[in-house]
């Protein structure tokens, strides 16, 4: 035990490890907040599609040799989020197809661009990093850390300020619209926030694993808690806890950060699932 602590405090002396932990916690907090909305509004497929778009945007940024690629990635992802929401509203099937087209297309084009223009000797390593986020959280520059912190704070603030509106629009959009809530604006807001979260989370777990980070804590919390507020709070706490645990484990044992975090989320889901079965069984 003492050995582990020694090792950990040694690592914590490095500023980049401390940055990584802070950013990781903030990203985990943001990504869990909208999980419930995403799951219940059937927006999860948009989330998945957007993460692929973010990958494509990242590829473009690296071809352009941009040192700080986050602003460009953010811009492209937000635009795609708005477009997807627009098409998704017309008809269900067309919306699904549009998401599939854009997401798979972005993956293919992204990989193609990297292949054609990349000068890096370790191409598959680079791609793997973008997809699974193996080390990117540890290599954030100070600017990127600040950008992450500011964006996270904005996401949390938006969520708190619009918490009641998001609840109404998620629970019963028709009623919200009939009583004068501009549901379109809030759907747009939700889509933009999701895009921001995805770009943030990409640094932590890579683009393929983002959905897991967003959805698992919400699904776990929904196993046990029954009100929107308690589910939201629980998934936030759970997400932060699992992310911290995952990051520390990965630092200590050298496993890839993203997949370790997701593994921790899955473990938590199983635990909550079992608890939910028992408490549900005893009540009925």
């Amino acid at each position: 035990m003492g050995e582990i602590f020694d090792k950990l405090s040694l690592y914590l002396q490095f500023p980049f490890v401390r940055y990584a932990l802070i950013v990781g916690v903030l990203i985990a907090l943001c990504s869990s907040l909208l999980g419930v909305t995403l799951v219940l509004k059937r927006f999860s497929f948009i989330g998945d599609g957007l993460s692929h778009v973010a990958f494509g945007a990242m590829a473009i940024a690296s071809v352009l040799k941009m040192t700080n690629d986050m602003p460009l990635v953010l811009l492209i992802t937000v635009i795609c989020a708005i477009l997807l929401l627009r098409t998704g509203q017309n008809t269900k099937i067309k919306g699904d197809a549009a998401v599939a087209m854009i997401s798979v297309g972005a993956l293919a084009i992204g990989y193609l661009l990297l292949n054609l223009f990349s000068t890096s000797g370790n191409l598959s390593g680079d791609v793997c990093t973008t997809l699974f986020g193996s080390t990117s959280i540890l290599t954030l520059s100070q600017d990127e850390v600040w950008l992450c912190v500011v964006l996270s704070i904005i996401v949390v603030a938006v969520f708190i300020l619009f918490y009641n509106k998001i609840f109404s629009v998620t629970f019963d959009e028709s009623f919200a619209r009939a009583t004068g809530t501009n549901a379109g604006v809030y759907n747009l807001l939700i889509a933009i926030v999701i895009a921001v979260i995805i770009v943030l989370a990409m640094n932590l777990v890579g683009s393929l694993l983002i959905s897991a980070l967003v959805i698992f804590p919400a699904l776990s919390a929904m196993r046990i808690f029954k009100s929107f507020k308690s589910v939201t709070l629980c998934s936030a706490v759970l997400s932060v806890f699992c992310t911290l645990a995952g990051m520390i484990i990965s630092i200590l044992s050298g496993t890839p950060v993203g997949s370790t975090i997701v593994a921790a989320d899955i473990a938590a889901f199983l635990i909550f699932y079992i608890i939910g079965m028992f408490s549900g069984g005893s009540k009925k």
């Binding site: 419930v36 109404s168 629970f171 919200a176 009583t179 919390a221 929904m222 009100s227 589910v231």
Partner: peptide
């Protein structure tokens, strides 16, 4: 927007976690 209504079918997803209190209060939106 001052008309209260009770829908024929609620499109609420089956597993939406919401308490009675939260839902009633959302009518004040």
């Amino acid at each position: 927007n001052e008309i209260g209504y009770l829908p024929q079918q609620t499109l609420v997803q089956r597993d939406f976690p919401a308490s009675v209190w939260e839902i009633v209060l959302s009518g004040c939106q």
